[in-house]
C-alpha cells in the first residue's frame, strides 16, 4: 500500500515504474563536448556573415544559409538538447516532421515568387 508521494518509492527504479514520479537516472557527459559545439556554432555564424558580405544575393546564397541553419540546428538539438543520447524512436518522432516543414518552407518561397507575377 504505497502512495506515489511516498518517500520510500525509488524514483529511479525501472522495475517499479510509476509515471507520476519515475525519472530515469541521468549521468553527465562532461563539458568538453559543450564548449566544442559552442565554437562550431560561433564559427558557423561567422561563416554566415562572411557569405552575406562576399556573395551576391541569389537562390544559391539562400540555399547556403538554409543549409548552415540546419547544421546549426543539428548541433543545438543533438548536443545542447541531448538528443544524441536519447532513444532513436524519440529522435525520429521529433525530427521527421521537421524535415517535411523545411521542404514546405522552400516550396512556399518558390510559390510566393510566382504570386508576385500576378501583382
Amino acid at each position: 500500500m504505497s502512495s506515489h508521494t511516498n518517500q520510500n518509492v525509488d524514483i529511479h527504479d525501472e522495475e517499479n515504474y510509476d509515471p507520476t514520479v519515475w525519472v530515469p537516472k541521468t549521468h553527465s557527459h562532461g563539458t568538453k563536448d559543450i564548449w566544442g559545439r559552442f565554437w562550431i556554432l560561433l564559427g558557423l555564424t561567422i561563416v554566415d556573415v562572411g557569405f552575406y558580405f562576399v556573395m551576391a544575393p541569389g537562390m544559391l546564397r539562400n540555399i547556403i544559409f538554409i543549409v548552415l541553419g540546419i547544421v546549426k540546428a543539428w548541433f543545438i538539438v543533438g548536443t545542447f538538447m541531448h538528443m544524441k543520447h536519447e532513444k532513436k524512436s524519440l529522435a525520429s518522432m521529433i525530427i521527421l516532421p521537421m524535415i517535411v516543414i523545411i521542404f514546405f518552407l522552400i516550396w512556399m518561397m518558390y510559390e510566393g515568387n510566382f504570386w508576385g507575377t500576378f501583382k
Binding site: P97, M98, I101, F104, M108, M109, G112, N113, W115, G116
Partner: peptide, 22 residues
C-alpha cells in the same frame, strides 16, 4: 516543443511566401 516548432514554422513559411511575392 514540436508543436511550438510548427507554430514558428507557419510564421516563417508565411514570411517566405510573402517576402518572395515582392
Amino acid at each position: 516543443l514540436l508543436s511550438d516548432a510548427f507554430t514558428f514554422s507557419s510564421l516563417l513559411v508565411g514570411y517566405g511566401a510573402i517576402r518572395y511575392s515582392f
